[in-house]
């Protein structure tokens, strides 16, 4: 055996107006084959109108062990939310 087919991540747009969403992954020799296989594996029942394939090794992911320094700083910034601001009751919609 020469070399194994690499792993690809599959993103599918289920209909126009919606974003591509991660559906899963599969193995394929190249991008073209990944698209064809993704069609058969993930859209047998009209689940999509557009497919993106990305070789898995090209994705950089954050490390959940660093979730503290990564995401906690946002927690004490309540002033980023509209409810932080006091308005008189007379102002109905703002």
């Amino acid at each position: 055996m020469s070399k194994n087919w690499p792993l690809w991540e599959i993103f599918v747009r289920s209909k126009n107006g919606l974003e591509h969403r991660h559906f899963g992954s599969l193995h394929a020799a190249d991008a073209e084959m990944a698209l064809e296989n993704a069609r058969d594996v993930y859209t047998r029942r009209n689940e999509g109108v557009s497919i993106w394939v990305v070789e898995s090794k090209n994705i950089t992911a954050s490390n959940p062990e660093h979730n503290g320094e990564m995401f906690e700083p946002a927690q004490d910034k309540v002033y980023r939310h509209p409810t932080f601001y006091d308005l008189p009751d007379e102002v109905k919609h703002m």
Binding site: S2, K3, W5, A29, D30, M33
Partner: peptide, 16 residues
Amino acid sequence: GEWVRDAAMAYADKKQ
């Protein structure tokens, strides 16, 4: 199926 998998990989490498 091994030769098919190998051929597909060789073809992909060559195209690249």
